[in-house]
Simulated assay, not measured.
Amino acid sequence: MAKLAGPQLFNVFRGSLIGAAEAVPGISGGTVALITGVYEKLIGGAGHLTSAARMAVTDLPRGKGGARAAAEARKVDWAVVVPLLIGMAAALVLAAKLIAPLVKEHPQYSYAVFFGLVLASLWVPFSGSGRTWRPLDYLIGLAVAVGGFLLTGLPPAHVPTHPLIVAAAGAVAICALVLPGVSGSFILLTLGLYEPTIEAVNERNFGHLGAFAVGCLVGLALFVKLLKWLLEHYHHMTLVVMTGLMAGSLRALWPWQDDDRALLAPSGEVGLTVALALVGALVVVAVLIVEHRSKKRLENRPAGRGRHARVPTAPQTHADHAVDTRVS
């Protein structure tokens, strides 16, 4: 068990970074999952779970029990997913109390850190697509970036906090969670539901949170299977689109903007703001270095030693290879 404590704690830490990111408008938890190397593992696990739930429902009237559902659920790498979820849940609650107010009080400095973080993290989907980008890929990425830029420039609105509307917002927000470059919190902020949802977390308003959770489950079931299929069959193009989305989302994190999201010229403590952006970029560089060294250690481990010894396997598809090598 001692040998498992280190990896599990590291995955709790990864999950905490993802959960904290989701409490901040403008930065996507999917982006952080990409940076920390667990994105495709999470998408794969969510895909298997949604399939298991569907099988459990369809098999129940036939009297077949949950054998197929249980077999599908066993495909999830629970040793990775469970610590991630624990870290995400704990960090989301803490971030709602600590990070969200800090961003509200010091938006310029906070956004500067996240701007540098997302800017540096563009390297992850760009280099992880598995193929050299062609001119058409750059054009597609640019078009998606323009779309993301326009989306994140929409002025905030205010919709009623009716349970059905909250559930619909949850469905949209969870799609943003699993899609790098689009922030679920930013979507809620655009709809005027960010502060009510944060208050619901802090005040344990289970009516609001229950409607939101139902919407999240529906959105996850509808979207994650599509995304999993795209990663398996169109891995390169999917990451091209993700790169464009992340680039376009930088507009939401520009440190100088007003309450209506109009972009402003740099002013105030420009030097400190730029320095904080560099700190955010360096955090990403440090995480990528740790991931690279961890992967190298696994690749160089002698065969036949330890429970994770490498054994010959059947040839993998590119998407499978990406999933295996990006998670330590």
Rank of each mutant, 00 (worst) to 15 (best):
K3E: 12
L4V: 12
A5H: 06
L9M: 07
L9N: 02
V12F: 03
F13K: 04
R14F: 01
G15W: 03
A21I: 12
A23L: 10
A23D: 03
V24T: 03
I27Q: 10
G29W: 01
T31Y: 04
L34T: 12
L34N: 10
I35Q: 11
G37S: 09
Y39M: 04
Y39P: 05
E40L: 14
E40G: 13
L42G: 06
H48F: 02
H48N: 05
L49R: 01
L49M: 14
A52S: 11
M55E: 15
M55Y: 11
V57W: 03
V57S: 06
K64L: 15
G65T: 08
A69H: 02
V76T: 06
D77A: 15
D77Y: 06
L84M: 08
L85S: 13
I86M: 13
I86C: 13
A90G: 15
A91V: 15
L94P: 09
L94G: 12
A100I: 12
Q108E: 11
S110W: 01
Y111T: 14
Y111H: 14
F114A: 11
G116Q: 12
L117S: 06
S121A: 14
F126K: 03
S127P: 02
G128I: 02
R131Q: 13
W133V: 10
R134C: 05
R134V: 07
Y138A: 13
Y138P: 04
G141W: 04
G147T: 04
G148Y: 01
H158R: 15
H158Q: 15
P163S: 08
L164E: 06
V166P: 07
A169L: 04
A176P: 05
L179Q: 02
P180R: 02
G181S: 08
S183T: 14
F186H: 10
I187G: 04
L189V: 10
Y194S: 01
E195S: 11
I198N: 01
N202A: 11
F206Q: 08
G210I: 10
V214D: 00
G215F: 01
G219S: 09
A221D: 07
L227Q: 07
E232S: 11
E232Q: 10
E232L: 05
H233P: 04
H235N: 10
L239P: 11
L239N: 11
L239C: 05
V240M: 09
V240A: 11
V241Q: 05
V241E: 07
M242I: 15
G244Q: 02
G244R: 01
M246E: 01
G248W: 00
L250T: 08
W254I: 12
W254N: 13
D258I: 04
D259R: 14
D260A: 09
R261Y: 03
A265R: 14
E269S: 13
V270D: 05
T273Q: 04
V274Y: 00
A275S: 10
A277I: 07
A281H: 07
A286R: 00
L288N: 07
R293T: 09
S294C: 06
K295S: 14
L298I: 09
E299C: 06
P302Q: 12
R307N: 13
H308Y: 14
A309F: 01
T317S: 15
A319K: 05
